[in-house]
């Protein structure tokens, strides 16, 4: 892809810029979606810390809806039910669940790291395109002025 940007015409550059804008938007939204998913896993992992032997038998309020709670006792602090995807739920002990969430968080971190370099590349490309565009516009204006001057002197 060794196209010289200065060889392209203004409409072509404009098109390239729109395309880059779209790509950047797509990548940015992908990253933010991944971050949202990641923060959910972090939250889930943190809340597992509450499940320890010290809290066994303590009374808790269980949310039935977001505004209604019923009292309950924390009976089982060793097992939780984890959603592994496509409708499968697995009963795991707390340690395994923490490992599960750590895996998920690491996986998402890797995915985010994978997207970052191309995003930066696109940003740099867009910057270059904008620079060439403004240069072209300047040249165009100058040549227009020159031709106007030539026109007035002739008249």
């Amino acid at each position: 892809m060794a196209v010289n940007l200065t060889d392209l015409s203004l409409p072509q550059l404009e098109g390239l810029k729109t395309q880059l804008d779209q790509e950047i938007e797509f990548l940015t939204s992908s990253i933010s979606q991944l971050k949202v998913a990641q923060s959910k896993f972090v939250e889930a992992k943190d809340s597992l810390n509450v499940l320890n032997q010290n809290n066994k038998g303590k009374e808790i309020l269980v949310p039935l809806t977001s505004s209604m709670y019923v009292p309950g006792t924390l009976n089982d602090v060793d097992h939780v039910l984890v959603d592994v995807g496509t409708g499968y739920y697995v009963e795991k002990n707390v340690e395994d669940s923490k490992a599960f969430f750590k895996r998920k968080i690491d996986f998402l971190t890797k995915q985010i790291e994978k997207i970052q370099p191309p995003l930066q590349e696109k940003h740099a490309m867009k910057q270059a395109v904008i620079e060439v565009m403004s240069l072209k516009i300047q040249q165009l204006q100058q040549s227009q002025q020159a031709s106007q001057m030539a026109g007035t002197t002739k008249a």
Binding site: L81, V84, T86, Y88, Y89, V90, E91, F100
Partner: peptide, 18 residues
């Protein structure tokens, strides 16, 4: 991803399907 998770399990884990 689900397959990878299932491969990590053994008979001590109970699995539920929604």
């Amino acid at each position: 991803i689900v397959k990878e998770e299932l491969d990590l399990l053994d008979s001590s884990n109970t699995i539920y399907k929604l």
